[in-house]
């Protein structure tokens, strides 16, 4: 339960006790008692805190959700001019294929010496690859 509280409050959390969860039955050797236990506990504590620091880095660099970052990166090395409507249309495309569609559309436009990509150009590019 407190793990979820931790998530909500953005507090890192290590699990040290039941109530049990499937993750509390690791396949690897993870005792809590005796001397190997001291090592495991030290790792658990230290890793929880380290992740706490990484958490700040994640905020600075835009989080785990990298779709936004990829889109930005793609447009930075593109010399094509996308109209507002076309950009909006592109953003509707699911993130995992967005980059590919953008590259293919730009390739299509370049081959036809089009300097501006409109929604019409996008549909034409789509037609051209038979999709």
């Amino acid at each position: 339960m407190e793990r979820h509280v931790g998530k909500r409050l953005r507090i890192p959390c290590g699990v040290i006790s039941s109530p049990i969860h499937v993750q509390d039955f690791p396949i690897g050797y993870k005792p809590f008692l005796a001397y190997e236990g001291t090592n495991q506990v030290a790792d658990l504590v230290y890793n929880s805190f380290t992740l706490g620091m990484e958490d700040h880095l994640l905020e600075i660099f835009g989080g785990h959700d990298t779709k936004e970052v990829i889109t930005k990166g793609m447009s930075a090395d593109s010399d094509m001019n996308w109209t507002k409507d076309a950009q909006a249309e592109l953003n509707k495309v699911p993130g995992f294929v967005r980059g590919k569609i953008k590259r293919n559309t730009e390739k299509f436009a370049r081959e036809r010496s089009l300097s501006e990509i409109t929604v019409e150009v996008m549909y034409a590019a789509k037609e051209a690859v038979g999709a």
Binding site: M1, E2, R3, H4, V5, G6, L9, I11, P12, C13, G14, V15, I16, S17, S18, P19, H21, Q23, D24, L44, V45, S48, F49, G52
Partner: peptide, 18 residues
């Protein structure tokens, strides 16, 4: 836990059950 968070400058929790 939330109350302590607002009291603390650096806040980390450890050892909570799940």
């Amino acid at each position: 836990i939330a109350r302590h968070r607002t009291l603390c400058h650096f806040w980390h929790t450890d050892g909570t059950p799940c």
